[in-house]
Nucleic acid binder design. Structure first.
Lengths: 186, 186
DNA sequence: GGCACTATTTATAAGCC
DNA sequence: TGGCTTATAAATAGTGC
């Protein structure tokens, strides 16, 4: 079993196997009623994703919420450093979007709370239409921004870590707020 | 093809098929020399990840950097709506207390943030489409909840903190190409 | 690129240890 | 759980259309 050198044959092979891999994944997901997420790059760089049980991002988030399991066997990966550089670069490109988005989020959050703070019960219902609202392409964008944001913070914000340690009881959004304020001032 | 109802049989089935799915994925990745990422939950909730070509996160990042492709397939999924509703409900339950506390804690920061808003707005013009995506209160809430979740995980996760020291991101990885190659040779 | 056909290989289920 | 055996089912490679 080794790499097919001829590009055409390789593409042909990929096309067939991709389908059967998705098929197999689907069968496993259905029969066992579990979440499956599959992401493949074709030899020409095209992305194919498959997911079963919930959205691809949703499954990612599920997995991230199980840090113990996932951290059990950290994979030593030679490319990792380079990838982290890519991440940093990607973040740099998106950083302003992210921070401004966070700022907007916080601002709207506060005004919303002012309106609904006395009606917690009604607020619960507020979430229902939201679910359908965001179950779209926009939702995916938002999730992606989150993944990027979370990973980036994990990667580099030692300051935030220390801040969190010192302020365990302080709401997390304060970190965001300061980040945003700092970013906006820069 | 339908769900196996007996839990024991289901687990058995999953174990076997998981291995063959990883095997197939690996074969595709090797023969076509492409990036493959696979994430599965067992019937008991255990996570298995496989990646070929680079780290799981690296492949995610690659995909995220191809937003058009990834968004083109928002996963036609019948269960998705229901699952997203569950997620939103869970978020609402967890988030309400936080929100109220948050509001109290940062009410005073609102004016300060509003000061920076005008500065941010100019920069924001460059990213208008992105900001538009989260311009409703509903979407902002979801965004906020996700951020809270992500930051909490960062705060809690011992493994993540260790990872921080190494300045690496290895949150998701349990099977890698080297392992598979070894396994296939045996 | 897809579809159909067939010979061959592989995966699988079932049983057993 | 994992390994082993075997008949059967499925997937695959090769081919032509």
């Amino acid at each position: 079993m080794k790499k097919i050198e001829d590009p055409e044959s390789r593409k042909q092979f990929y096309s067939k196997r991709k389908d059967s891999l998705v098929k197999k994944s689907n069968e496993l997901g259905v029969v066992c009623d579990t979440y499956i997420a599959l992401l493949m790059f074709s030899p020409t760089g095209e992305v194919t994703t498959y997911s079963r049980g919930k959205s691809f991002e949703g499954i990612m988030i599920n997995a991230i919420n199980q840090p113990d399991e996932l951290n059990r066997q950290p994979t030593p990966n030679p490319d990792e450093e380079h990838l982290m550089q890519s991440l940093a670069q990607s973040k740099a490109e998106r950083g302003m979007i992210e921070k401004i988005s966070m700022y907007e989020a916080h601002k709207e959050k506060l005004s919303e709370l002012q309106k609904t703070l006395s009606e917690a019960k009604e607020k619960r219902r507020f979430y229902e239409p939201q679910v359908e609202n965001i179950n779209t392409v926009e939702e995916v964008d938002v999730y992606k921004e989150y993944l990027l944001g979370a990973m980036e913070r994990v990667k580099r914000s030692k300051a935030n870590q220390e801040f969190l340690k010192r302020n365990r009881n302080v709401m997390l959004s304060s970190v965001n707020a300061e980040d945003m304020a700092a970013a906006c001032n820069n």
